[in-house]
Structure formats: structure tokens, C-alpha cells
Design a binder for these strands. Structure first.
Lengths: 342, 342
DNA sequence: CGTGGATCTGAAACCGCTTTCTCACAACCC
DNA sequence: GGGTTGTGAGAAAGCGGTTTCAGATCCACG
């Protein structure tokens, strides 16, 4: 089964096809792209030759000649977060409908890699979709200043020369706070996401605004994974909080798991709220109260904005997509004992 | 904030840089690639010009001139399955260490798309990593016959002109069966994955071989998601099985959730075993007994095989990577009552 | 039957970069 | 000091397509 092959494949070119079909390369190109009328019999010969030789146009040559790659690039921080596949599917669908393919790259949560990755993407894609909650503003400025179509995903930075689409994290967290306040909670803990994350700061901004609802909030450093949630959950007890809000569903589920182990009943003794509504319904056994990010909408919208930017060359205002509250089984009124004691 | 920009960016070329620096394009190329010695003062001028003009080489032109793209492509069926990010991270790491970037595409579980996607990948990548458990053998034959580096991931097909790396699904399922037999189980149900999937058929092959352990197996059609597992779990009762094996962890967790709802205690009344060991420890509240796929190893090995194939032009034998059994809390000896009744 | 225009095809230029080839110049040796 | 190397930079030839441009063919019409 061991076989020899060229490291660099011996490619068949458009001229080879032309030669085989007895026509010029130009004609082959015209036939394949349908850019001009050619004699049906010639076209047939060309198609035969293509089939026989197994010809496939070289993407680099096409890209060079046409001045575009037929590709859009997407950079996401972490594919392991179920959030992203959801938006990627929508992005792919839009891209495909415009005849483009999608190139996905992952920065592995490492902002220092992101700048280079985006530049790579710019060099080989017609446009790029950038989801980088952590990249420094200055880097962002540099990248958006380049004359290359780029749209920002889930991050709105005023004053930047690039369109942006984001879930309305602020509004989402406000919904949560309203829900908790309505249930009668007063002391709330927040398991915070990555410190420098824009998405996280939006959540915190909402938590602060929610003081108007009579909520007092303790922010606990945590992270973005279920493991983080699991580990940070133990801190909640010390805050006197009757409800925990989180950076995302993973954190929330990790926290629920830990609480269960600690013998704290959810939601009777402690309410837990997620964020994002990633579909883990049948995996976790708790119906998690959370707000849903319109991941499909987000991807669709972002891809369409990018397409507009690439073809028509202008962008629009930043778009915030509303989040929706889903009340499930992990929230309840605070325990009566605490209510009395407080 | 609304600004105008070119749909097609006005690119600055290597000649522009040369002109600005007062040297020829060749010299700029030599400076940037370090392919030949150039006068330090010229080099400095070039670097200045590059910086000032914000020059970035055009990837298509480079690809065309060099005959390679500096990119490897990966096609996976579904990014939403936590299995893949694990292997992708390893693939990326290897690729990066060889100075290549990774282009990820997803077929969304649709085998009819896959052929075209692979061809796209071949046209714009130096090599491709194909993970397609479902693609028809005939398609596979066509694709591997093309003179283009390709390695198969998690699918071993004898007689194919392409190297392959796979987790040893057969061995993994044998481990599970051994474990169950040792616990005293006799009747086992299998929540089957996609019918045409090679990975699934390997598991089934092992289940049949496990008759030698005294196990009798009922195969129930199911699928690959937690929702599938949730839905199919109800069927298990009818089979008289005291243990359920599954296509993957997601299915298993879905099944556990359903069992809980049905009032069936896991593992006291029913043992449930997963497959793959995707890290959802802190999300699900059950420590799931499962076998782990060496996802990192898998990605690393596959990427390295591809690299070898691309540079040295030859491939090796198919590689099976062993799986490891992790006994946790979802398996136990069968209930005594059944044991007596049976 | 000659000319104008419409149509289709091939030749050639070009996309932006790498790389070979050529040449100018300096250093070296005898 | 002249001939020989050696060195480094520019000119030019691709890479494999697309697209412009010009030319050939054919038809219609005067």
C-alpha cells in the first residue's frame, strides 16, 4: 500500500486542457466561466478534455487574475466553545450563497496570536470576520485602518472604521437582573469572564446599572469554561448572595455541578443563571435559566454586512441583536430564611 | 462613522515598495524572504518602505510563484461536536510549527457537500486532512486518486492511495465490553450512531466480537447527538439490557438525562457507557464511564503524516491510536433482581 | 461582388510575486 | 596593471489563470 507520489503535484493547467481540446487557453477559460459565447462543439470538446485530464483551476492563479479569492476568513477565539459553531454555520450558509468559501481560524484564546492571524486572513481572503473579545483597542485600530473589508463580531468599539454586529450583552444581562429582582433577590454574585473581554465588561456594565433594581452585586473573578465555574463556585457562599449570574452557560453549569456537590440545592437555596443559551439541554440535567444569543442571526448578519462591504464598499451602523430571556428550572425566589435574616 | 472604502482594496505591491526604497522588486523580495544577501543599508530602506506603505505580500501571487500556498485544509463533518476542536488544536499547532496555516471547513454532516468541499480545499491548500466517516467509498477512491496530498482521519479504508490515522474504535469498544462483562452484565444495548459511518461500524464489529465475552447485544438506531440519545433511551427498557453502550458521550449523556427523568437509576439499575471522553466533566453531573480518544495525538499524528506526504512525497501504513478506558460513576454490576430473574 | 458589421477565436498583456539570468563593479592574484 | 573571481543588484521570465485586443470568418446589404 506504500506508494510514491510527488510532494508537489504535477498539475494540469488550462493550456493543457486547451491543447487536448484543440483550442486556446482563452477559450477554455471562457467555456468554464461562461463569460462569453463559444461554439457548442468547441465547448463540448473542452468539457471532455477537462473531464479526461481531471483539470481543476488553480485557485491562486484565479485569485491573482481576478483580484479576489472567493473566500472569507473568520477568526474566533476558541472553537471548543459551543457558541461559535452556531455562528459559523450561519456564516457558511451566507458565504456559500454568494459563492464564497469560509476559512476558519482559531486563536486559542491567545490575543497575541490574533493580530498575525488576522493579517494572514487578510492576505488570503476577500474579507474577514473578526471575533476577538480580548484584542487590545490599539491593535483593533491598526487592523481596521487597513483598507481591507473587515467586520467585527460581538464587539462594538466606537470610533472604529469597521462595521460591527453584536449580541446585546448589556440588554441580556439587564433581562437577567430584572428577572432576579422580580423574584425578590437582593444580593447577587457574578462569576466574571475574562477581565479584558468586551463582552464581559458589557455584562458588568449592566450589573452596575441594575443597582437601580435594588440589586447589590459582588463580582468574583472566574473565566469562561465550565471548569472555571466549577472552581469559582465555592467562593459564592462567602458573598451572601442568593443568586449567581455568570459569564456564560458553561460557567453556570460548572457552578451548578459544584453546588450540587457542596450540598447546595439549586434553585431552592441558590439561583443560578447562565448566558448564551448554548444547547446543552440533554447533556446537563438542569434546565438552566439563561438568555439566548441569536447565534444564527449573528452569523448571518455579520456575513451579510461583510458581503455588502466587499461588493458595495460601504458599511453601516453597529448592530445590536437582542437577547431573549429563558426562564427554566435554575432560578427561584430566594430562600425565606435568608430573606428574614437580611 | 459611516465611511467609504473600496470594495476591492487598493493594494500596494512589491514594486511600489521597491520604488519607494529606490531598489528593484527583486531586492525587496530578497530582503523580505532572506533568500539572498543584500546590502544592509538597502535592506533598511526596504524595511522602512514596507512599514510606511503598510505593505503585505499578496498570498495568491506568492502561492502562484512559489507553487505552494502555505496552507493545509481540514474538512470535518460537524464543528458542533466537541470532538473536533480537540483535534483541530493539535493540527494547528503542528501546521504552525511548519509555517503553515490551517483552513477549516465543515460539511455540516452532509456527505453530498463533502466531495466539492474537498476539491475546493485541494485547489487552495498544499494538503488536506479529511475526516469524513460517511463519504461513500467510491468518492473516497476518486479523491485519493487525485495527485494531491491527502490523509484520512478516523477512517481506515483498505486499498486506498492515502495514508490514514484513526482512533482504534474497535479496540475501544472491546475495552468497554470487557469492562461490562467483568461487572457481570450479559444483555447490552447499543445506541447506534449514523448507519453509514465507518466509526460506527467499527464499534458494532467490536460488539459482535464481544459475544465471545458472553454478551448479547441489541442494536438500537439512534444518532450522534445528545438529543438522539435522549430520544432513543426510552427504547432500552424493552430490550432487557442491564447496560447501554453508545456511539459517543453526547448520546450517552442524553440517555442518562432521559433515564433520570424516567426514574431509572444510573448506574444502580442501568449502566451507561460513553465513547470519546469529550471533556464535559463539569457540565454533566454524572461521571461518565467512557473510553478516551486521543484527540490531540490524532490531530498531531495526522498533521505530521500530511506534512511528510507533502514534503517527502510518500506515505506510511495506516495508524491506529489506542483508546483508554475510564471507569467512572455510570457503570456498576447489574441489579441483583434481574440477575436472579435471568 | 465589395464592404460593413457582428461574432467568435487566438494572441498577448497582465495580476503580484519568486527566481534565474545577466551584468556591473570591486577585490584579488600574479 | 590586466585578467579572474566573487559579489550583489536589476532585468526578465515564469507561475496559471482572466481579459483586452485584434484578427478571421461569415452574413447581410447595397
Amino acid at each position: 500500500m506504500r506508494n510514491l507520489r510527488q510532494g508537489r503535484p504535477t498539475r494540469v493547467t488550462i493550456s493543457d486542457v486547451g491543447a487536448a481540446a484543440g483550442v486556446s487557453a482563452s477559450t477554455v477559460s471562457r467555456v468554464l466561466n461562461g463569460t462569453a459565447k463559444v461554439d457548442p462543439s468547441l465547448a463540448a470538446r473542452v468539457h471532455d478534455a477537462v473531464r479526461q485530464l481531471g483539470y481543476r483551476p488553480n485557485a491562486a492563479a484565479q485569485g491573482l487574475a481576478r483580484g479576489e479569492w472567493g473566500t472569507i476568513g473568520v477568526l474566533v477565539p476558541n472553537l471548543a466553545n459551543p457558541y461559535f459553531p452556531g455562528v459559523l454555520k450561519a456564516v457558511s450558509a451566507v458565504a456559500r450563497s454568494h459563492g464564497r468559501r469560509v476559512m476558519v481560524m482559531e486563536s486559542d484564546e491567545d490575543p497575541s496570536l490574533e493580530h498575525d492571524l488576522v493579517e494572514d486572513l487578510m492576505r488570503s481572503c476577500d474579507g474577514v470576520l473578526l471575533c476577538s473579545p480580548r484584542m487590545e483597542r490599539s491593535d483593533l485600530v491598526v487592523l481596521t485602518a487597513r483598507d481591507h473589508p473587515l467586520v467585527l463580531l460581538d464587539r462594538i468599539v466606537p470610533g472604529l472604521a469597521a462595521p460591527a454586529v453584536s449580541a446585546d450583552f448589556f440588554g441580556g444581562m439587564m433581562l437577567i437582573c430584572g428577572h432576579l429582582a422580580q423574584l425578590g433577590h437582593r444580593r447577587v454574585a457574578y462569576l466574571s469572564g475574562p477581565e479584558v473581554s468586551w463582552a464581559n465588561s458589557e455584562r458588568i456594565r449592566a450589573l452596575e446599572a441594575a443597582k437601580a433594581f435594588g440589586l447589590s452585586v459582588t463580582i468574583l473573578p472566574c473565566g469562561s469554561t465550565s471548569r472555571c465555574g466549577y472552581e469559582a463556585a465555592a467562593e459564592v457562599a462567602g458573598t451572601g448572595a442568593t443568586a449567581v449570574t455568570t459569564y456564560n452557560d458553561l460557567v453556570a453549569l460548572g457552578a451548578v455541578t459544584r453546588m450540587r456537590e457542596l450540598g447546595v440545592r439549586v434553585p431552592e437555596e441558590l439561583s443560578v443563571v447562565g448566558f448564551d443559551d448554548i444547547a446543552l439541554d440533554h447533556v446537563a440535567h438542569t434546565g438552566l435559566t439563561t438568555v439566548s444569543a441569536p447565534r444564527g442571526q449573528l452569523g448571518k448578519q455579520a456575513a451579510e454586512m461583510l458581503e455588502t462591504l466587499m461588493t458595495e464598499g460601504h458599511d453601516g451602523e453597529p448592530v445590536y441583536l437582542p437577547m431573549e430571556l429563558h426562564v427554566r428550572d435554575s432560578t427561584a425566589p430566594p430562600p425565606v430564611t435568608r430573606e428574614l435574616a437580611g
